[in-house]
Amino acid sequence: MHGSASTREQGPPATESARPVVSESPPPRAVRLRGVALRWLRFNGIVIGLYLLAFVLWEVASRVFAIPTFILPSPLTILASAAEEPSVLATHTSVTLQEVVGGFLLAAAISIPLGMLLIYSRLLERLVYPSLVAFQAIPKVALAPILVVWFGFGLTSKVVLALVTAAFPIVINTVIGMGQAPREMLYLMRSLRASPWQIFIKARLPVAAPYIFGGLKIGITLAVVGAVVGEFIASNSGLGYLLLVANNNLDTPMLFAVVVVLAVMSSVLFYAVEAAEAILLPRPLRRSQRRLDPGANA
């Protein structure tokens, strides 16, 4: 997607003057690593500290005001409940994780090419786009019983539900992204007699890439929703199932523990997509890079 790596350098933001010269020899590796860790801590310390403070206040409040555990368990109670049978939580987490990742990968594999095709075929766009929108208007819960009839009680029906939940934002963002290449860029490519494939790979796709990743980031969190909803409707495993069981037992700490696991899982998956973006896209196309104004000091 991007040009030869050999010519790309990590240059500082340009000024009209020549680039600064680095003169000192690099410090040893251990010293450098400690420096990185310290800088990370200095940057994130306040955020971590405030979160810890919130948990401490929560813990203190639930003890001081004696809030009943079945209404709002304290953080330590939730932690104890999760630690009671870690293998149960782990097993169900692994099931949900498989459904989410499987559904998401399938959604990406179908939605990205579909979004690209829609740009190149007017007929296809008129044919597919309206039904896509209509399909999105259906609450996905309504599909779950049908999917269970089609794909059974097991993993497959949840994978499919995660897929259909995650697909829409990926398709839409791909379509939007594919239309973002400026007209003059396309004229330039045509003036060089670029083939349609070259125009796609050298201009349209790089311009679309940040949009596609935007869709993927929304998609991955929706895939979690789809999988859990599927487990709610019909299953005997997964975090959604565990949630139902805990609910029937009035086990509020367990309910909270499952919710926390879901939140952590969604976050990890979200940042995994962001990490993939950082690895795959060259610096100027990355979201975090475009947000930073080199002239402004944070």
Binding site: S4, R8, P182, E184, S191, L192, A194, P206, P282, L285
Partner: peptide, 26 residues
Amino acid sequence: LGVVFQRDALLEWRTVWDNVLLPIEV
């Protein structure tokens, strides 16, 4: 044929060097 447009139409994700060599690549 070489064309220069009113707006530069540079490819933001390519370095100066790779932008200059784009026609050779295409």
